[in-house]
Design a protein around this nucleic acid. Structure first.
Lengths: 349, 349
DNA sequence: ACCAATTTTTCAATCGATTGAAAAATTTTT
DNA sequence: AAAAATTTTTCAATCGATTGAAAAATTGGT
């Protein structure tokens, strides 16, 4: 046990040739004959040689690695996005380091620090709910690390951004509610310092206004991302004299909270109350009634984010100018039982 | 943009002192006066110096990192276990590299390769359903990397193991069913080359036998881990002339599959059919009816696994003998609606 | 067989940080 | 003030791999 690792020095000693020659042979350098290449590769295989990434990366000056920071990896939105990132990275021979911020600014900063230490080439991040300033991300850029934001982003930071058409699709959700006959639509949002939550609220408010519906302040809530908060808000509103007949929430956890409050109060969903959430988490399809949600095409967002890095690298290498751009991926409403009122039934259009 | 990183050479040049002295100052070496230490630290802070982990690790010969390989990070069992590992690692100043095998042997081998390259000190793994041989894990050991298995393990590999009392708790599930009046209990298992699935089946069979109940071969299925397979099996059995009145499954996905099949056929749960799954995934508490499940204390398993590494390190450093041991964490049945028949109601004991 | 051209192989520097030994500077002792 | 003891600082090797330049060996032409 605890054997030392085989290095190219070991191989060189055993074969009686120089270290640099071994290195060139293993890397397919043209100055090495096929005969030697094969012999070296064979021995490397036999001795179970594995290169030391630390050494390679140090020498190269790059770890060929992308760091990913997300609030939680066990939300399907994020794990799917990571899957997309992983796919593109492995196509390009890059590895991934995944960090969780658990929605805390401090943990996010720690992750940033780790990734700088690890000498990553790029950081793809969906910022935590606790993050108010992009200084730590500027720190990454100051260290020559490309920053790419997705979903939850800070607009003022000059970086690539891969986002949904939040305002537009939020408007669509409201329109859909109205079309189905819901017209007392409540909104449960997130912290307003995050652009996506501002935009979703904006889309909601704007569409209500355009539809000529009154905006009831007591039906609009910010900064209530947890299931429990949403549940409490719903329980409160549903016992009013004139309760809402629909809830639009900016996450699926909130939508679930609303559903549970409705269940507890005997309010029927979707007959008496429509619910639409955001992110199309996997549980939305298995609760009863199933929850309508906005699908943000998480995997595609991840792929797009990673591709932005590799594309910009290519352009930079050619000396071309890299214009900072915002990539918008169109989200799509997945209509399930929780918003399926009569008006939506086939033939009723 | 694309600035080069600050190194101790830059700091040394700026302060007009040697590189090694800078290094010693930053690391609190006793041979450096407080005056110099403070000055160096101040400048390092100002210039935003971050050490290069590649260089540090190369020199040290260890990355102070633990690699984790699990089938999927978006199952709460695994993400909770990872949270536990993370907690213990950060207490000990270690980092984490997380890899997913997606239940494929090839991907698991790739992950092993990556982790060897990254020079990790230890690998904590729950092996994939597609893994039949522990050769790749022996490869880790041959490279001086400690291997710790948890949950899904290969018994024949000489390594630490952190596992549940699978056979015992499976027996308890069956006993619980019987106590509640279920007596035609079907079983949907996993691939038998994984010890945990063998043990769960063994506990099921043994307990049926001890209870004097017949073992019906057509009620026992192996290697059917997916929700779809479980659903198909349930649909099949429930339309028999003498269908089962309970299902014990080795995962929660399977339990959900059974529930959906029962719903589709109009079979009432738990009145006509009891269901108990395994892992206490988060969705078991939000489906309707809620699903009973075996809680494996995933976070504790993760913490235990990581602690085993640090404990064995301490012992090894002292030159003490490290006996390979199996740590058993007692699982607990979480009784929810899907197995809540009359007999279980309060006062009916 | 000799010189040039080509192929094969080695040398030495490099990446960034650490560390024990050696050297230089300072303080204490006599 | 010289010698000894102590503190401060630098030197040089090291970790493992890569790479351009230089050297050595081989091949070809005449």
């Amino acid at each position: 046990m605890s054997n030392k690792r085989v290095t190219i020095y070991d191989l060189a000693r055993e074969m009686g040739i120089s270290v640099s020659y071994i290195s060139k042979a293993l890397n397919g350098h043209p100055a090495v004959s096929e005969r030697v290449k094969n012999a070296v590769r064979k021995l490397a295989e036999e001795r179970n040689y594995k290169h030391n990434s630390q050494a390679v990366n140090l020498r190269r000056g790059s770890a060929r690695t992308i760091g990913v920071i997300v609030p939680q990896i066990d939300k399907s939105f994020f794990s799917e996005a990571i899957a997309g990132i992983e796919e593109v990275c492995s196509e390009n021979g890059f590895s991934l380091i995944i960090c969780q911020s658990h929605d805390s600014y401090e943990k996010e900063c720690e992750a940033v620090s780790t990734l700088i230490h690890q000498n990553v080439d790029c950081v793809i991040i969906s910022i935590s709910a606790g993050t108010h300033s992009p200084d730590h991300l500027r720190n990454l850029q100051a260290n020559g690390i490309e920053v790419i934001q997705f979903d939850r982003y800070i607009d003022e930071l000059d970086s690539f951004k891969v986002i949904s058409n939040d305002e537009e699709v939020s408007g669509d959700v409201v329109k859909d509610f109205i079309r189905k006959g819901y017209n007392r639509i409540a909104f449960i949002g997130g912290p307003e310092h995050l652009t996506i939550f501002r935009l979703r609220k904006k889309g909601y408010l704007k569409t209500l206004k355009e539809a000529g519906l009154p905006i009831l302040k007591r039906f609009v809530f910010d900064d209530s991302l947890s299931k429990e908060q949403a549940s409490a808000i719903a329980a409160n509103l549903l016992t009013l004299e004139n309760p809402p007949d629909a809830f639009f929430t900016v996450s699926d956890e909130q939508a679930l909270g609303v559903l549970q409050a409705a269940r507890a109060l005997g309010v029927r969903v979707p007959e008496d109350l429509g619910i639409v959430g955001f992110a199309n988490e996997s549980f939305t399809g298995i609760v009863s009634p199933t929850l309508s949600s906005v699908d943000q095409k998480s995997k595609e967002m991840g792929k797009r984010a990673a591709n932005l890095y590799f594309e910009s690298m290519t352009v930079k290498q050619r000396g071309g100018p890299v214009s900072v751009k915002k990539d918008i991926i169109k989200a799509k409403i997945i209509s399930r039982e929780s918003s399926r009122r009569d008006a939506d039934k086939p033939g009723s259009l």
